[in-house]
Design a protein around this nucleic acid. Structure first.
Lengths: 168, 168
DNA sequence: CTTTATTTTCAAATATTTTTGAAAGTTTAG
DNA sequence: CTAAACTTTCAAAAATATTTGAAAATAAAG
């Protein structure tokens, strides 16, 4: 397999992965493109490489900046902005963890808190409360786990988990 | 807050959570509805409660069965099928882990394997190979972690991780 | 076997999400 | 200041995903 073909397959696969996890396909593809590019690219180059519009390229790049998955770079004497993607996998995973925690886990915890306030003491209400507090407990444990991962040094978290394998 | 209002809020929140993780909103809502229902429900009852069509209810329930998040129940003397959702949070989380591993992690591992076969020894190709093998390493660690979680007893995995918190 | 209840299928309709592209906005150079 | 380079915005268009509903299939009852 030639490098170009391999890059293209990787870009497709990364796009598909994003898509099935609720990340717009193009945004994931741009991320992949920047990951496999030796140098930082301009908006024009991203548009050209993925055959997408300026608006799309611009918005997707801005979102990737928000996610902390892409960084801007200024080149001396050049007016355009260049974009590059940090290639450290653990760093990427932590950025994604930070964002999804903020965007999905925290709103869910708030919703569970609200719904806990339900009135009544009949059996059905008690069972409802019990379900909600089970889910809430799990959500809080997940939050702690994510915090541990996010604030851990480099590969510590994954290594520590691998070590748990024998102990169960 | 009244029980009905609380149930409805929970159903909405669960639907939104699913939606932002690539699970069809209605499928997640049906799951939530069954979680908060004291008894098993028929397709008719699901249609009525969520105001959705028969086709939608049927397909979503079938998918939930595939995911292992919903079970069929037969009632003596009744011809229709009844559906209920196991309310054990850890069990649910494990089912989701099994399915997402199969549907997204494994295809990604295969794609990475393919793309590793790239020919050439120039600097750019070497950097590409290095990126792919980093991502592959992380993906494999994730897979091991999921396997550990999936096959662990009850709450063992989460508890073990909580205990790691002080040790870093 | 025939009738009726129930479930499944799937093409078409609808809804939602993503993408486009042109106009407006901003920044830098001269 | 003015013009050119570049970026951002956003309404409309296109693409994609979801939902509908009626017809077909299946299963149970009589």
């Amino acid at each position: 397999m030639q490098l170009d073909e391999a890059k293209s397959k990787f870009i497709q696969a990364w796009g598909a992965l994003g898509s099935s996890w609720g990340v717009p396909r193009t945004m994931a593809q741009i991320h992949a493109l920047l990951l496999v590019s030796p140098q930082a690219l301009t908006t024009e180059e991203v548009m050209e490489a993925l055959q997408i519009s300026r608006g799309n390229a611009n918005m997707s790049l801005r979102n990737l900046l928000d996610w902390g998955l892409v960084e801007k770079e200024v080149h001396m004497g050049e007016r355009k902005e260049f974009f590059k993607a940090p290639k450290d996998t653990m760093y990427m995973a932590k950025q994604v963890a930070v964002q999804r925690k903020k965007r999905e886990l925290e709103p869910m915890l708030r919703a569970l808190q609200e719904v806990k306030e339900v009135e009544g003491n009949d059996k059905e209400t008690q069972e409802f409360r019990s379900l909600i507090s089970d889910i809430d407990g799990f959500a809080r444990q997940s939050e702690s786990m994510l915090n541990l991962f996010i604030s851990s040094q480099q590969n510590w978290f994954m290594k520590a988990i691998m070590k748990l394998a024998g102990k169960q």
